[in-house]
Design a protein around this nucleic acid. Structure first.
Lengths: 123, 123
DNA sequence: GGGGCCGGTATCCAGTCGGTAACCACCCTG
DNA sequence: CAGGGTGGTTACCGACTGGATACCGGCCCC
């Protein structure tokens, strides 16, 4: 009954980033920004439409972080009107796949989670 | 060139949880705890071995959250020695799939991310 | 009955995160 | 020249998270 292998002590050492990154990806809005960019480049004010609960400061923070990590590019067009376009890099686009998997999971199991939460608070 | 569809305003309304949940899953350590439980039930002190950078308080917090949301069960065995075992529920086990996908992504692209970050801070 | 181990709590504290509000430089239009 | 839209920045602030440290009751073994 207790013949299971013991867990190794270095399973999640700090040198194993892939253990920690995935489900703490970016900040609160990073994943949603990526999904908004899925259909092509978008301008700052375009992104503000679906993300209307995000203030410009926070959206800027998110975009800066995604740019820093190589998920999006930021290109400034001077003519004919000043405009800034954000677009996915190949790296950012590759992130859409696990993101979609996670979203599919949530779509399928979300109410189970809600049920469990309700059962736990009011039994 | 600007023939893209505009982004809908209600794409990520608060009633669409599956948009926000996935990549902000649980707290900082929740995903790691799930992976530790993949091989079968584990006791509190067993979990502390691979998660040696997590203090007991924080580990307790994480486990309580996972229990509340129906990802793990907590069972107390009185005999022969007092012991507490944490195990995955089917819901928790189903979460391992997208989690593995995300981890695979990270394993494949982690150094690209590091490169991008380095290129961004020191050019 | 003393010292372990097991499974936590209690307390405190620093840092981060997200949010509000205000402001700003630039360019175009009228 | 005034006004408005674009794409932000800055200052401030409260709430929450995560971490350090210490402590604790129950049970077993010696």
């Amino acid at each position: 009954m207790t013949h299971r292998q013991p867990l190794p002590a270095d399973l999640f050492d700090e040198l194993c980033p892939s253990a920690l990154l995935p489900f703490r990806f970016g900040d609160k809005w990073a994943a949603l920004v990526l999904r908004c960019l899925e259909g092509g480049p978008r301008r700052f004010s375009e992104l503000r439409v679906p993300l209307h609960r995000v203030t410009p400061k926070v959206l800027t923070q998110s975009l800066r972080g995604l740019e820093r990590d190589g998920f999006v590019t930021r290109t400034v067009h001077a003519a004919p009107r000043p405009a800034v376009e954000y677009a996915l890099t190949p790296l950012g686009r590759s992130m859409l796949e696990p993101l979609a998997a996670a979203c599919a999971w949530a779509a399928e199991h979300w109410d189970e989670l809600l049920d469990a939460r309700e059962r736990h608070t009011a039994p």
